[in-house]
Nucleic acid binder design. Structure first.
Length: 417
DNA sequence: AATCCACAGGAAGCCCGGGAAC
DNA sequence: GTTCCCGGGCTTCCTGTGGATT
């Protein structure tokens, strides 16, 4: 292993968690965001901002970048800036959001004024992660914040997830705080890739959250290429990227709504494949395989989360695909399915229902089902498997209610001609 | 030309679990 | 704690389809 040539310099730079020092093709968004967030430094009331755009268009990276710069610059400004970044997919209740934010400011206060000060002001050192009434948490946050002349930038990433789960009450609270605060100010930055999500909001919240809106358009192939090249330079060894590799990654990702995250993923996986091969060069062939691998992984994930009945239908198709040269039609699938149900002891669903399940599998892209007329032999759906049988097996296998697939036998009678 | 196969897929309604309202 | 309502999974019943077969 030591003798094989190294491909990566540092692959961490290709992971989605990494925030780069420069963001190509996002100058406009960076400026807009910076301009809006810097306004309070000159004494103006901050505006709340709403960012939206498809996944992988650099929303999170841009916000984090601007936030970092802002905090740095604000040392010299009359107003301190403190940024709190929250991913609402993870921190997804009102309470936990408030608790997390107040924790930041309480800690801050303790650092600058000491523990004694907190005690004399009647403020707690920490907010427990559970247990308090929500309004008490809110008040400790409010007071801790208002102790200083400062600007709190609260970034709520994937804000649609929050509203879905816990409603928009917290947004109402946060966006109205400026009316009551004497010294400090709050700016809320909401990030979402669901553009329609605004419609579920209370009109008051909607108007205050979207005082400013910044749209992140999808990257086109050229821009993606640019981004990939910059990243490749720092993450790969010199000269290991073959001809056309980056273009191909960019082209693939551009077709899928310009998702830069996917493009970087593909490049990384291609590199890993090359590394495993002991190759000296990452080639377009590696990219092709990386693309396939990513697609397959996605499928496996989908299969894993399928309901048991659907898995069984899919497994019937897998068995037929493996064991018979004939074309697979819905009738055969149903027979095999019935038999498997009996073996496992699962309820047998009706033909009609299975017909729907097959259509669902088709929609998910796991299989291809096409309606054909076979004349005297009636009307059917002809089914083709869109994934490796072995991989499908592996994903289905994990369902404990199906049990060990090896013990299941394909009855010969359902294979009759 | 008539028939017929073997399903597709629409319509209506049942049942059940879970959340909101009382 | 009870009641109400809703949505999703499912069944029953049904009509439609179009080319191979008669």
């Amino acid at each position: 292993m030591l003798e094989t040539k190294q491909i990566f310099k540092n692959r961490e730079y290709l992971r989605p968690s990494y925030t780069p020092d420069e963001l190509p093709h996002r100058d406009e968004q960076i400026h807009q965001l910076a301009r809006i967030l810097a306004a309070p430094l000159r004494g103006e009331t901050p505006s709340n901002i709403f960012l939206y755009g498809k996944p992988g268009t650099g929303k999170t990276a841009t916000v984090r970048y601007v936030a970092k710069e802002l905090e740095r610059v604000s040392d010299r400004a009359p107003l301190k800036v403190k940024v709190v970044y929250l991913n609402c997919e993870i921190v997804n209740t009102q309470y936990r959001i408030l608790a997390t934010i107040s924790d930041v400011f309480l800690r801050n206060l303790e650092d600058t004024r000491g523990e004694k000060f907190l005690k004399s002001a009647g403020l707690p050192r920490r907010v427990p992660m559970t247990g308090w009434p929500t309004d008490e948490v809110y008040h400790s946050f409010f007071r801790a914040l208002d102790e200083d002349r400062q600007l709190a930038v609260v970034i709520l990433d994937e804000i649609d997830k929050l509203v879905q789960r816990s409603g928009d009450e917290i947004l109402y609270l946060l966006t109205r705080m400026n009316l009551d605060l004497k010294n400090a100010k709050v700016a809320v930055v909401g990030i979402s890739n669901d553009t329609n999500f605004m419609e579920y909001l209370d009109p008051r919240v909607r108007s205050s959250l979207s005082e400013e809106e910044i749209v992140f358009p999808a990257y086109n192939a050229l821009q993606l290429k640019d981004i990939l090249e910059k990243r490749a330079k720092i993450s790969f060894m010199d000269g290991v990227i073959g001809n056309g590799v980056i273009q191909l990654c960019a082209a693939h990702a551009a077709r899928e709504h310009g998702d830069a995250r996917r493009a970087l993923d593909m490049l990384r996986v291609a590199g890993e494949l090359a590394e495993r091969d002991g190759a000296e060069l990452v080639t377009v062939e590696h990219v092709r395989r990386a693309y396939e691998k990513i697609e397959q992984d996605k499928m496996v994930e989908i299969i894993r989360t399928l309901p048991t009945q659907s898995k069984l239908v899919l497994y019937s198709v897998v068995l037929l695909a493996e064991r018979t040269p004939r074309r697979i039609v819905s009738g055969d699938v149903y027979e095999v399915y019935q038999d498997l149900c009996h073996q496992i002891g699962l309820d047998v669903l009706t033909r009609r229902r299975i017909s729907d399940l097959i259509s669902e599998l088709d929609m998910l892209g796991i299989i291809n089902a096409q309606v054909i007329n076979r004349g005297r032999h009636g009307r059917t759906k002809e089914i083709k498997l869109n994934i490796h049988p072995t991989q499908a097996r592996a994903a289905i296998h994990e369902d404990y209610s199906i049990g060990s697939l090896e013990t299941l036998i394909l009855p010969s009678q359902s294979l009759r001609t």
